[in-house]
């Protein structure tokens, strides 16, 4: 299972990188969202899969899944959400101001202009 999950994470990252390398700002944002999914899955896989019950002591199970990676991922999800939403609003404002979502056209002007 871990090998399969690693490959899935790799594929998500590949898709994300492909989108990030494109010229459209919206595609780049979608790429970052996919990238965070890939990273979360990778984190989860590295903690080890299927060791036992959900990490709730009330289940009184023999063994539990590792709670630490879950806590880390929870933090990461929230941060990725904050960053993605901010980025989305930046893209929206950039489109409003500049009238383009092509990053190739969004170049800094030369100092003498």
């Amino acid at each position: 299972m871990e090998i399969l999950m690693s490959i899935v994470a790799g594929l998500l990252v590949a898709a994300a990188v492909y989108l990030i390398l494109s010229k459209s700002l919206l595609r780049i944002i979608i790429g970052t969202a996919l990238l965070s999914h890939g990273v979360h899955l990778m984190l989860f896989t590295m903690g080890g899969l299927q060791k036992g019950a959900a990490p709730l002591l009330g289940l009184k199970a023999e063994s539990y899944t590792d709670p630490l990676p879950q806590a880390l991922i929870l933090t990461a999800i929230v941060i990725a959400f904050g960053v993605t939403s901010f980025f989305l609003v930046v893209a929206y404002r950039a489109y409003q101001e500049l009238g383009t979502d092509n990053v190739e056209e969004m170049r800094g002007q030369d100092a003498d202009d």
């Binding site: 871990e2 090998i3 999950m5 690693s6 490959i7 994470a9 790799g10 594929l11 998500l12 990252v13 590949a14 898709a15 994300a16 990188v17 492909y18 390398l21 890939g38 990778m42 896989t45 590295m46 080890g48």
Partner: peptide, 18 residues
């Protein structure tokens, strides 16, 4: 480039979990 980055991620993931 995207494929290679994904490949690297997967390979490192597999090696690390092993």
């Amino acid at each position: 480039i995207a494929g290679l980055v994904g490949l690297m991620t997967a390979l490192i993931g597999i090696s690390a979990s092993s």
